[in-house]
Amino acid sequence: MSATAQQWLEDIRRLELTDKIRIMNVCGGHERSITTAGLRTLLPENIELIPGPGCPVCVCPEEDIYEAIQLALNEEITLVAFGDMLRVPVNVKKGEIRSLDEAKSAGADIRPIASPTEAVKIAKENPDRPVVFFAAGFETTTAPVAAMVAEGIPDNLLLLVSARLTWPAVAMLLESDTPGFDALIAPGHVSTVMGPEEWQFVVEQHNIPAAIAGFNPESLVAAFYSVLRQLKDQRYFLDNCYPQVVVEGGNRGAKQMLEQVMEVYDANWRGIGTIPNSGFRLNPSYAAHDARQQLPDYSDEARRRAGQMPPGCDCAKVVLGRLYPNQCKLYGSACTPRNPIGPCMVSDEGACRIWWAGGIREQQVANG
């Protein structure tokens, strides 16, 4: 850890805060950095760092994953998706195919990709076969997808979009009766694209301190100090602790592409339910590349129920910051990275997977 980060930690200790303070870090990348650097063990014991809803794989609706599986199994297509999506399980009867990985093993043409450009490459290499890109992600993933579509893609490349915006989930938590946190660390990468202004509502509408952080310990600990100092002084504002890349207005080109190619709608989040204005879908003017418009309908409306996690799985509570990963009854026993039951144990941005990789193997009894 850099000396500067150590100095921020010393400054935090000098604040001499005694009340219990809960800080939510929205981003899965932040949670990975916090756990890898052992920041929870370095902060005063009264300061809790709570993982938030910033894992796109974890909140991708079960019905969308099920639809992707059925398309791959029943249509003469090639389906491509970001690697983590292939292992996310859905709820089906025993013996039925429960993930894209299992569908691939059953003979479906499913390929993992790391970037949208790979989807274009595969479509160009297979001009006589429909290629469906299952595009799940938040703003930073969706902006390159939108740019790719705006620039022009092969006629045989279709998109099955399951993209989400980050801030509406935080707004939903803050508007609930029990938000569960006293300060917010906003995601640096999302703010790079959308601009820091998106998070101003946290301070102005909810009177809660907020800071935007990058992904190294120095930026994160600076953000922790900022919100803790704001609480001590009772003077709340949005602090940009990632000024190297987060600037006023964000990335205007990326935002323009999103506005051109996507439209915002009320979207379902796995285990949570419908959140207003929280989803991206293709603008109707791009219907020729919309898999839902061009291919048979395999959606299953019965799967839209909130709380659609596997039996006994507490991923929804983990995503909402209401349980720590190791407070789930399945953590480390039935549910491990080798055999994930819930989505939070699948993704590198899922809190359960991050905690397991960080060496946290013991279960903890949840209070209450």
Rank of each mutant, 00 (worst) to 15 (best):
A183C: 00
N326A: 01
E75Q: 13
A186I: 09
T35N: 00
G52D: 02
H289S: 13
E125G: 07
A306V: 12
I12R: 02
Q364E: 15
N126D: 06
W355G: 01
M345I: 00
E349V: 00
A210Y: 09
L100K: 02
P337Y: 14
A223I: 04
C55Q: 01
H30I: 03
R281A: 14
I65H: 02
I113Q: 11
S33H: 00
D11S: 11
R361W: 00
Q327L: 04
G368I: 13
V346D: 02
E175M: 03
A366M: 09
I113G: 15
T166D: 05
S333W: 11
A288C: 13
E175N: 07
P337F: 08
K121T: 15
S278C: 06
G273P: 03
V131G: 03
F237N: 11
G152M: 10
T36Y: 02
K329R: 08
I50K: 02
V247K: 11
P53G: 05
H189T: 02
S347H: 00
A163G: 08
A81C: 14
E102V: 08
C27P: 05
V202A: 06
G188Y: 01
A213P: 08
Q205R: 15
N251R: 09
Q260Y: 09
G152R: 06
G29P: 06
A169R: 07
I110G: 03
Q205A: 15
P44M: 06
E259H: 09
I65W: 03
P311V: 12
L49S: 01
I153W: 07
R111N: 10
D11G: 04
E204P: 05
A68C: 11
E10F: 09
P127Q: 03
I272Q: 03
V149D: 05
L15H: 10
G307W: 12
A302N: 11
R252H: 12
K20C: 12
L79Y: 08
E204Y: 15
E102M: 11
M148N: 03
D314F: 13
V120L: 05
R98G: 15
S162C: 01
S333G: 13
V318S: 01
A136I: 04
K255E: 13
E198P: 02
A351W: 00
S115M: 10
W8K: 11
W269F: 00
L100S: 05
A171G: 08
I354L: 00
A123K: 02
E362L: 05
A211K: 01
G137D: 13
L86R: 12
R111I: 15
E118C: 11
G332R: 03
S299A: 10
G321V: 04
R252I: 15
P325S: 04
K329N: 04
A72G: 13
V145E: 06
N156P: 02
P187A: 13
I185C: 07
H30E: 04
A135W: 00
Y324W: 08
P337M: 12
N268T: 07
G29W: 11
R304E: 09
T117S: 11
G249M: 15
F237K: 14
